[in-house]
Structures are given as structure tokens and as C-alpha cells.
């Protein structure tokens, strides 16, 4: 067995073409694949990171955005520790769909799941959703918020590292509380 202390499952959702796969590939491989085709079904991979000298293993599930390529049960939500909901800052419809995605998250995911709203493609000049609009939305729905560019590698590392750190803290708190309870 590999040597690590924490294992978390992170799932990316959001409309087709917002850049979920590119965010994942930027983070796991440090590259930006041009002309990335639509994800069909779900792809999964592992990336181990280090937070405060502890090894944290992230199990990343990159899901299909297109309705017809999506799985029907959304069973991958259930055991997720963190959900990254992605929209494209240069494409209003991808932002307008966020309430639909939230409904799905409510329905399938655990209520303790860490939820992060990500506005991707900030390298683009034709922005349609101002940063504060995204921020407001996140705040209203109790989500973390970050804007990223998979293309320019902006905030991508930070996104996943902060998720890892936050999840680590949460689980250490739980551990701490349960020790207290035992006392």
C-alpha cells in the first residue's frame, strides 16, 4: 500500500465545454491540450499532493458535461468529499445553468460535501460574467469561489491544493472531536 495519510474524492461537474477536463489535465499533468474532445461517461485518476508535510491522495472524477454522455445515476456524487462546479466566464448560459447543477448536487451528494464554484477561462477577453457576480452566487449558496485559467495555469494548482488543505482540516477536526467524545 502506498504511503499516504488522507484520501479524498473530488468530482468536477458543469456544462459541456467549460473546461473541466482541461483543469484536470493542467493539474495532473501540467499541460493544456488544445482541441480537447467532449468527455464521454466519466474519467477518473489519482494525484498525490503534499499539504503541511502530509501526503494527500486526491481521487479525481472528471464527468461528462453533455447530457447524452452523462451517466444516469450520478452515483459518483454520493461518496464525493468535494464537488467543483465549473462555468465559463465568457459564456452566460453556462452560468445560468448553475441552479440546475446545484439541484442535482442537493439530490445526490452528501450534505457535508465541500462545494467550490469555479469560473474558468479568465484568459479570455470576452468576459460575460463579472467576478463579483460569480462571488455573489457562491456566497448565497455557501460555496467557495475561485476564478481560474487552465490555459494560463492560473489558480489551478491553488484550487486543488486549497481543496486538499480544507478537506484535511475538516477530517482532522472530526478526528479531534471523536477523540474528545471518547474521553
Amino acid at each position: 500500500m502506498e504511503d499516504y495519510k488522507f484520501l479524498f474524492k473530488v468530482v468536477l461537474v458543469g456544462n459541456a465545454g467549460v473546461g473541466k477536463t482541461c483543469l484536470v489535465r493542467r493539474f495532473t499533468q501540467g499541460l493544456f491540450p488544445p482541441g480537447q474532445g467532449a468527455t464521454i461517461g466519466v474519467d477518473f485518476m489519482i494525484k498525490t499532493v503534499e499539504v503541511e508535510n502530509e501526503k494527500v491522495k486526491l481521487q479525481i472524477w472528471d464527468t461528462a458535461g453533455q447530457e447524452r454522455f452523462r451517466s444516469i445515476t450520478q452515483s459518483y456524487y454520493r461518496s464525493a468529499h468535494a464537488l467543483i462546479l465549473v462555468y465559463d466566464i465568457s459564456c452566460q448560459p453556462t452560468f445560468d445553468c448553475l441552479p440546475d447543477w446545484l439541484r442535482e448536487i442537493e439530490e445526490y451528494a452528501s450534505n457535508k460535501v465541500l462545494r467550490i464554484l469555479v469560473g474558468n477561462k479568465i484568459d479570455r477577453e470576452d468576459r460575460e460574467i463579472p467576478t463579483h457576480v460569480g462571488e455573489d452566487f457562491a456566497q448565497r449558496h455557501g460555496m467557495y469561489f475561485l476564478e481560474t485559467s487552465a490555459k494560463e495555469a492560473e489558480n489551478v494548482e491553488r484550487l486543488f491544493m486549497e481543496i486538499a488543505a480544507e478537506l484535511m482540516e475538516v477530517s482532522e477536526n472530526i478526528l479531534f472531536k471523536s477523540i474528545l467524545l471518547l474521553w
Binding site: I40, G41, V42, F44, M45, I46, Q59, Y76
Partner: peptide
């Protein structure tokens, strides 16, 4: 998920399309 948690697979894809 179990296979990933047990470190026996590196990555993969799942589909019914």
C-alpha cells in the same frame, strides 16, 4: 472507487455510450 482507494488502478474511464 474501491480499486482506486486500494491503489490497484492508476486511472481509467467508465462509459455506457
Amino acid at each position: 472507487e474501491k480499486a482506486m482507494n486500494n491503489d490497484i488502478i492508476e486511472d481509467g474511464t467508465l462509459t455506457n455510450e
